[in-house]
Design a protein around this nucleic acid. Structure first.
Lengths: 141, 141
DNA sequence: TATAATTAAATTGTATCCAATCGAATATAT
DNA sequence: ATATATTCGATTGGATACAATTTAATTATA
């Protein structure tokens, strides 16, 4: 590659990653707004639907987000009644997030969203699998 | 797939896209801060290093961003002296962004950044090419 | 054990992102 | 030509992201 070409947008790998991520998140806007969640709140709930109970630290590790993002987001989810926030008794530094009954029930309303989005993306199963592999190659670097 | 599994974080395609994008953008923070740019400002400048002169609309199409994001960002770049903003004479609705001399010179300072980041990502050339293909498959849907 | 180091969240400040709306300029249709 | 529709950018408001700092709790160490 011509050294000058390295600074062309079309030769970047990060840019299509960044743009594609935002484009897909936009697809989530409509279905998620119907159940009162943003995308970041949605992936947070997704972890809680699996774990029921998790520390902010562990949640941050799962989502690649820190307390600066999670603290206000979790306060909102608490206000909406989907989770509770309480300090661990063994270690007062740790804040434990737990799913409420309403939070658990929200999962039913979200059940058809993955399929709905999947239909918009239109990647072959093979391509999707390959993309998945490459992305986790980056994330687990 | 078990219908219940569709709502597991690890089965999402968007999540690793979103997370990987942010992880890589974090890598840019240090080298970009040395030349006084954020990542979004950097990709904006990248388009201008290619085009010299472009409307906000066309810039938005290239970057998949709208005026809500670009207007304040371009005002900042203008304040920094890297670009000028002026209305088109043929069509007063159109705002034309142009590179200044300082903006053009900034490219030299950015010259080694792509290589620096490339070393951190560590994908084989084949994997990078394949990832690139799949991402543009999504973006051009 | 007293002190230093580490850890987990919270806070602060800055910069996005984007949906929704608005106002001005231009294009189109009758 | 004039009313209507469209287009472009700006604005507003709400929700992230994240670097950097702070606070409180726990752990490690001299």
């Amino acid at each position: 590659m011509n050294p000058d070409d390295a600074l062309k947008l079309d030769n970047q790998l990060c840019f299509p990653l960044y743009a594609a991520s935002r484009e897909i998140i936009k697809l989530y806007h409509e279905p998620l707004s119907r159940i009162g969640l943003t995308y970041t709140q949605y992936i947070t709930m997704m972890v809680l639907w699996e774990e029921k109970r998790i520390s902010v630290k562990a949640l941050g590790n799962r989502l690649f987000l820190d307390s600066g993002t999670l603290t206000p987001l979790l306060k909102t989810l608490e206000k909406q009644g989907f989770i509770t926030r309480s300090r661990s008794e063994e270690d007062e530094r740790v804040l434990v997030v737990e799913l409420t009954k309403e939070g658990a029930e929200l999962k039913k309303k979200a059940a058809n969203i993955p399929m709905e989005i999947g239909q918009c993306i239109r990647l072959s199963a093979d391509d999707a699998k390959e993309l998945y592999r490459l992305l986790y190659l980056i994330l687990n670097r």
